[in-house]
Design a protein around this nucleic acid. Sequence first.
DNA 1: GCCCGATTCAAACAGTAGTTTGAATTTATA
DNA 2: TATAAATTCAAACTACTGTTTGAATCGGGC
Lengths: 222, 222
Amino acid sequence: MAMDTKTQILNAAERLFAEHGFGDTSLRAITTEAKVNLASVNYHFGSKKQLIQEVLQRYLKVFMPQVDQQIITLLAKHPKPDVEQVFTSLVKPLLLLNQVRPDGTALFVRLLGRGYSESQGHLRKYITFHYGQMLKSFVNAVHLAVPDLSSAELFWRLHFAIGTFVFTMASSKALSEIALADYQQQVTVEGIIHRLMPYISAGVGAKAHTETQQSNPVLEIA
Amino acid sequence: MAMDTKTQILNAAERLFAEHGFGDTSLRAITTEAKVNLASVNYHFGSKKQLIQEVLQRYLKVFMPQVDQQIITLLAKHPKPDVEQVFTSLVKPLLLLNQVRPDGTALFVRLLGRGYSESQGHLRKYITFHYGQMLKSFVNAVHLAVPDLSSAELFWRLHFAIGTFVFTMASSKALSEIALADYQQQVTVEGIIHRLMPYISAGVGAKAHTETQQSNPVLEIA
DNA sequence: GCCCGATTCAAACAGTAGTTTGAATTTATA
DNA sequence: TATAAATTCAAACTACTGTTTGAATCGGGC
């Protein structure tokens, strides 16, 4: 059946993409793993680029509305949430992805990491375009938690947070291996996510340093 | 003269590597930019991989001893430094790289970002192998600043910090463009580095969360 | 049973990659 | 200046990429 082939491709692709990255995973590797013909990727998806999008979309369409829901619930209970509450509201939606696919949480966060590192902004634009409103709700919630930060400073802090998260997840396999070898720690993606929360929360919530410390005046624009 | 060709290749390579990444920069693009023959890369460097190493090595061999020096100086003055002091001791060595090459600081941090994201651990191993002792000094200094963290927790925190730094630097060009368009901020790499310090310091110094919160017992190893 | 659209398949295509070759040329040495 | 080594060069080589082609095959509706 047709749907089988399509799903087999998606499943094989996400595994290989997560492990080796998009650029270093060839369609031949995917179709071999999926036990389907090479041409079926272009038949069912049109191109490799669209395949990548559909791989991510399977998770994003579940994840983003869940986050939106969590933020609404959080703000209803705590109109002035603290930073850790806001970021922790990402955890449940992330763990829920294990119901989308076996090991879905780990796959998704690794794919996200790959996407951000490899796609020179394509993924950021894609998410902004398709989920712009939900993104804004989240940013606003963070701003409620750190009202003293300027919008510009918040922009930087959030991208620092994305960097922390995305890099850690993209490297999570290597890091887990080191942690096991050097510290006898058996690590799961879920464990890493929980470990990240205090770091990101403290970082985003840090008192802003002497703003515009060495920077030139910002005023040449009327 | 031979040295000219070699240097021209290094200069062209680092610029293109920093902008497009290692994988997406072809030797043909490098040799065209450097106005030298294609085969001269393999003649002078042996392979693309070795070229990448030499590009990084030009900075690492200056940067790492400088960091070592800074840490020694810091600990002499403050045997119990705080987190921000330790991380801020990276700033001067970073800025010094502008004397290695024009715009050297920006080039180096971007190359480092690319190296960490693209080379699946090769760069980490390379640095550990060649600069292991200096690395340990730095880690020890951080541990002095956050003595309450276990070694394992410190391991994670430091890799979170690397992630923050490396991702931000690899994306620095895109982020700067957004900051300019959306916030009329004229941003320099030096400015970003200073902006990172409070975030990273607060993150690494954050109180450890309920350690082994949901994790399974670690004890199946005798 | 036949037909038609959907799907699969092996094969080839066009483009790019890093690397190698061997002759031409430049540079240094004596 | 003659010789030998170092370097440059155009060209080809091998390998791999995503994509396309056109025929073979499959499945459901008449």
